[in-house]
Structures are given as structure tokens and as C-alpha cells.
Amino acid sequence: MNALCFDTAARKAWMGLLARSSPARLGELLTDLPEHTVLRGPEVGAVMVRGRVGGTGQPFNLGEMTVTRCSVRLSDGAVGHAHVQGRDKAHARRAAVLDALLQTPAAAGYEAQVLTPLRQEETAARALRAAKAAATKVEFFTLVRGEDK
């Protein structure tokens, strides 16, 4: 097994990015998967999403969301896990393989090939949405009233 060349914060970030990515886009960015053994799944299931009473209080069960999970091992021994939103098994498998690849010395290549475009596209999409919201922000102005004259 290769030495670990990543930290947990970085891994959390790429796992989240891969989970949120569109399955089709991820498939375009990584067409061929390297040889790997599937350790678990891909399995479709549900995760109970919780909220908090009043946004800050006791947790309560809001409802479930579909999630697909998969774990793989590459030929060099690196193990990758994925929990991705939705029911796309190919998405979960691809995300798990990438999670493993990003722990190997080849990580920089995959970072540039997959993560960078995903991150840029997500940032752009979020910025556009925020900009549209900002355009609907109300600018109040006070009319001059009779008694003010």
C-alpha cells in the first residue's frame, strides 16, 4: 500500500464534490476505470435526513433521500469508498474508484482531470444562482410624506 499522501479535510472535500457531481458529467471526465475489485455494492438505499426543531434545537427526522454506496480496492491496494446522492450505481462505483485513486501518487493527475473541472463548474453554477437571488433583493426607499414637508 502506498503511503498516504492526503489529509482528512482534503478527502472529505473531494468525497463531497464527487457525491454532488452529476453522474453524466463525472462519466465524461473519467471514462475508463482502472482495474479494481468491488468490496461492497454498489448498493442503493436510503439515508434519513434530520433537521433541528427551530433550526437549532432537538433533532427530528425530516425524511429520507436515496443514496448509493460502493467500496472498491485498486490493484495497488488503495481502498476507496463512496456514498453518492441518487440511485446511479455507475456513479457510486466511479466515485469510489476516484476516492481510491486520489489516495495514490497519481492523485495530482486526477485532481486536474476530474476535481478541478467539477469544482469550477459547481462554483460557477452556485455563483449564478446567488447572482439571480441577489437581483431579487428588495431595495427599500421611503417616499417623502406630506407631514415631512
Binding site: 438505499g45 436510503a46 439515508v47 434519513m48 434530520r50 427526522n61 429520507e64 454506496r69 444562482r129 437571488a133
Partner: peptide, 30 residues
């Protein structure tokens, strides 16, 4: 839904961190 295995439960979502597309208050103007 009843056919799906339960894979886990989420940590409570942080609505204070929501990326809002709409947010209004009827109690405070500014």
C-alpha cells in the same frame, strides 16, 4: 421507499448555512 435498506442517518442539516434563493421576513423590513 419500503424496499430500500436504510444506509444511515444524516447529521442534522444546518439551515443557517443554507444557500438561499428566497428569504423573506414579515417582521423586520431591514
Amino acid at each position: 421507499r419500503t424496499t430500500l435498506p436504510r444506509l444511515g442517518v444524516s447529521t442534522p442539516v444546518e439551515t443557517a448555512q443554507m444557500a438561499v434563493c428566497r428569504r423573506i421576513s414579515a417582521t423586520f423590513k431591514d
